[in-house]
Each structure stands twice: as structure tokens, then as C-alpha cells.
Design a protein around this nucleic acid. Sequence first.
DNA 1: GTCTATAAAAGGATAGAC
DNA 2: GTCTATCCTTTTATAGAC
Lengths: 203, 203
Amino acid sequence: MSAPDVRTRIVMAAMELFWVKGYNSTSIADILSRTQLNAGSLYHVFPGKQDVLIAVLEAYRDGLYENLVDPAWEGVDDPVERIFALLARYRWLILETDCTYGCPIGSLALELHEADPVVRELLAVNFTGWVGAILRCLDDAGDRLPPGLDKQALAEFVLTTMEGGVMQARTHRDVGYFDRGVSALRDHFDMLLARAARRAQPA
Amino acid sequence: MSAPDVRTRIVMAAMELFWVKGYNSTSIADILSRTQLNAGSLYHVFPGKQDVLIAVLEAYRDGLYENLVDPAWEGVDDPVERIFALLARYRWLILETDCTYGCPIGSLALELHEADPVVRELLAVNFTGWVGAILRCLDDAGDRLPPGLDKQALAEFVLTTMEGGVMQARTHRDVGYFDRGVSALRDHFDMLLARAARRAQPA
DNA sequence: GTCTATAAAAGGATAGAC
DNA sequence: GTCTATCCTTTTATAGAC
């Protein structure tokens, strides 16, 4: 386990700073200060600030399972419960940050209004990866879910629940907004599972 | 109908600029350029940029029904359909902007990471007002919805659906992401309405 | 590859005449 | 209330020595 190289140090520092302060409010000086590097080192590795952002978004994309999904699913085998275990992970993040937590991808997606196509595509890919993890669970749930259900739509709806809940919890500084969203999604799943069960076993 | 005063001109210009470019990426010079005013005029009315933001958020708060809700509900009487009529309004906005539409409140809520308490409170109040409009519909729906249903949670879930759908549609530049979210919410309502109907008329 | 110094521009805000 | 000019700070990025 060698010390992280310069590029990695910059990406990790920028990851946290963009998450806490946003992209526009994070200056190159902020990144240099946190990494204890000089401007020369940063600009030797990255052509400019946007390239740091791209590297950060690639890191989120590549670390989705290792840093987020796998820890959330540890010890949870039921595919439906895995979905709610992932949401529980976000609840923990909200509490850990005193209800200031924002999804780093969601926040960047809404902050950057005229984003470079490369950046926008990486934001989209991050969403797709997250939704893909949920989609796995829905596929694993097999015929516990109603036949003909649009699983892609439902997986996206889980992301929507997370993003909407995080947004409202942060704005109101109250985790209850997140909890009630998850609770509504739980009702949604319960009703879907009940519907499938009724069809499978019609008395 | 007299010409709008300086304050109103500034607020209207800032409203659009913050929506299109975001708060940090909108400069005072942008606002002056669009309003054809000089710096002296703006700073005569507002102490600083943040005060313009506050005025913009107050304008959104005060114009919720006049500018958004009432037009969406025109000709729609059924309370449940009013909810989906409001969502249809957002769909229209997404199409109108070539899938670049972002909810102005949601975008500001995620862009401003260390917002002044006054600003954050105004963001929260805007969400509360929106949710309140949905809550009216749910109350008007009366016993078509299941008894004991958490209407507050459901109203917030409608906002979540809108925000999550808008976020994904914009990031992917594809209205389908919004449509599938609304469709999932429609399923949710259908299942709730069916559950209530079963209870009311158990053969 | 890393250092310091600095260029070059943008942004928020103010001064003081009118 | 409005005008022009400008101050001051921040910020991105570069130059050139080591």
C-alpha cells in the first residue's frame, strides 16, 4: 500500500470539495490547499479545472460498487431488501452530515447548467450505473414482481425516490422527508408484491 | 398596465438567469446587461447579489398559484387528475426547453451548498407551498384514497417524482425518464385507489 | 516534476458627480 | 435615482527557474 500519487490525491480532494461546496464554489486554490500541492503539480497532471471534474466523475463511476453498493448490500441477500438497504445507506449519510447531505452526482447534475457534453455524459453514466444496480435486484426478485412490470421504470423510480428525498431532507434539514419518501416507495413495492402474489395464487 | 419598476425588472431578469445559468454562474453584469440598467440602480435597490436571490425566491413563493398551479389546473376538476395535470405542465416545460429544463427551486437547492439561513428557509417554503397544492388535491379526493393514508408523505412523494424525473430527463436529455417516473406514480395512485375501493365495497 | 511569482480576466461592490 | 469609473478580491491559468 504505497502513498497515493499526485493525480489520485487531487481527485480525492476534489471529490470531497465538489461534494461539500459544489463545483463552482471550489477553487483550484482550495484543492491545492487541501492536497498541499502547488499549482505547477496540478496543471502538470490536468489541463484545467474541468478535467479534474471529469476525473472525479470517472472515479464515482468506477467506484460505484466498491464504495457504495457492496458495503450497503453486505449481509443482505434478499433482492428487494437490498434496494432498501441502499436507501438506508443514504439515510445514514444524511444523519452523518446533520441533514446537509447531497448526492454528489445529483448536485452536480443540477448545478452545472451548461455542462460540456463529456461532463453531462459522465453524469448520465453515473445515474445509469446506479439504476443498473437496482435493476439487478429487480431481476433477481423474479416473479415476486408482477409480470409485465416495467423494471427499468421502477429502477429509475428508486433513484428518483432517493434524489427527491435527499433534496427535501437537505433543504428542510429534516431526515423525515427522506424517511417518508422511502416509506412511500415501500408501500409501492408492497402493493406490487401483493398484486403478483394474488395473480400467482388466485384462491 | 404601467411599465414594471426597476426592482421588478431586476427580479424578473434574475429569475430567468438563475434558472438558465444558475446562481453562481450569473453575474451582476449579466443582470445589468439584460435589464439595461446600471450598477448604481441595482445597488440602490438591493444591498447585494444575495438579496436579489432572496427577492427571486419570494417571487416564486408568491407566484406559485398564479404562474404555475392555476394554469395547470385550468379545466381540470378531478383532484387526482389535477396532480397529474401539474406534472404534465412540467413535461411541457421539459419539451419546451429541449430537455434542458430544471426546476428552479430544486436546482438552487442543490447548487447552494452553504446557503444563508434566510435563503434556505425560502427554498424550503417554496417546496412546502408546492407540496401544499398537492395536499389540497389529496384532501379533495376524500375517501377515494385509503383511510389512514399519510397524505403529507404522499404529497411529498409527488414532489419527489417531479424533481427526480426532471433531474434524470435533463441529465439524459430524454423526456422518457420523466414519463416513466410519472407512470410509476400513476401506478402508485391506481393501486391506492383500488385498495380503497376494495375496502369500501367488499363484495 | 515541483517551486514561486505573476499574468490576465472576471466578479462583487463602491464612490462621487449629476 | 441614475451615471461612469474604478477599487479590491478572487480565480484560472501560465512562465520560467530549479
